[in-house]
């Protein structure tokens, strides 16, 4: 870890660079008048390890293929090697993106998920990092996963899976929630979300805990839809991209301390989402998952078998049959009809 004393805010009493918390309580940080976009570049990039090999060492050996996150620049070439499904996880801070990735990795460490077994991963170290941090930091008390910082580089995780004779490759993006929050409030940032142009599925993580908590639900109900609209209205999604709403943190709503029917509240909001977006330009589906059953462990993992089944489903072959020419004017184009 590289310690930093960098001051990235004009307020000398604000230690956002190191704590991630705005001294004046602004969240997201972009809404703080003392913080500007340029300063984001100066943020602590987070954990860094000197895994590099010195030039002298390289003379006496070889460097194996990378096993960390696949970078934004490398993903295009990587996708060109094989047909694969690109999954983009979208959610605000603490919505559970990293937790979901850790859970998928953790479950494959225990055995197949549903019908799918593990074949290979180009990003095992990146997966291990996510899960390892979750375990080390928990100390047997609270399992959690580190929040991806906006200053962290965006990257992709990879899995090759097999069910029966079908082998599937999926890549899953991991970008900080802060970046999506910034794009929601300033759509000028959307063009920086380059992974969206590659997405076969764009998965919006709906935080059920935030949605039902009295202190947060009013704002969250509005901002969650606002982010979807921002991406659709600004043509950030390919027409063929499917939209998935993944309702997370179901363990937090399975017990209602004050008698409220929290599950009904979530269901009502899900219906609102369906009514607003299902008839839109993109295929729209909603699912419930629980990747970290913290408050109610008896729930266990929910919806992950089905999630992997959807994400890894073999992609239908592209039909390359030429489209018949209507009312052909050239004799050549009439040949098939003549011969037929």
């Amino acid at each position: 870890m590289t310690e930093t004393e960098t001051q990235v805010c004009t307020n000398p009493e604000c230690d956002f660079a190191n704590t991630g918390t705005c001294a004046r309580g602004f969240d997201p940080i972009e809404t703080c008048p003392e913080f500007s976009e340029a300063e984001i570049e100066d943020l602590d990039p987070g954990e860094e390890f000197d895994d590099s090999v010195s030039p002298d060492d390289q003379l006496d050996g070889v460097v194996l293929r990378p096993n960390g996150l696949i970078s934004e620049t490398d993903i295009v070439g990587f996708r060109n090697n094989r047909r694969m499904q690109t999954i983009v996880l979208v959610g605000e801070q603490k919505a559970g993106k990293t937790t979901l990735l850790s859970a998928i990795y953790g479950l494959f460490c225990k055995g197949p998920i549903g019908r799918y077994s593990f074949v290979e991963s180009r990003t095992l170290k990146a997966f291990a990092e996510r899960n390892h941090l979750a375990l080390v930091t928990s100390n047997g008390e609270v399992p959690t996963t580190p929040r991806t910082s906006r200053a962290d580089p965006m990257g992709f995780f990879h899995l090759r899976l097999k069910a029966d004779d079908d082998v599937s490759d999926i890549v899953i993006s991991d970008r900080s929630g802060e970046a999506f929050e910034a794009a929601r409030t300033n759509t000028g940032f959307i063009e920086r979300l380059t992974e969206l142009a590659l997405a076969d599925r764009v998965c919006f993580l709906l935080d059920a805990a935030k949605l039902t908590k009295l202190e947060t639900r009013s704002g969250y109900r509005r901002t969650f839809k606002q982010l979807i609209r921002a991406l659709i209205d600004n043509a950030a999604l390919r027409p063929a991209s499917k939209i998935e709403i993944l309702t997370t943190k179901l363990d937090r709503i399975s017990t209602g301390p004050d008698g409220r029917d929290l599950e009904a509240e979530v269901a009502a909001y899900e219906k609102e989402l369906h009514d607003e977006f299902a008839a839109g330009s993109h295929q729209f589906e909603m699912f419930r998952i629980c990747a970290l059953p913290r408050s109610n462990t008896s729930l266990g993992f929910i919806g992950l078998d089905e999630l992997i089944e959807r994400w890894a489903a073999p992609v239908a072959a592209i039909d390359i049959t030429p489209i018949p020419v209507q009312a052909p004017r050239r004799q050549f184009d009439r040949l098939l009809k003549v011969w037929g």
Binding site: T99, A103, G106, K110, A134, L135, P143, P293, T297
Partner: peptide
Amino acid sequence: TLLDLAKML
């Protein structure tokens, strides 16, 4: 996994 630790909460 995370679930193993969650049980220890």
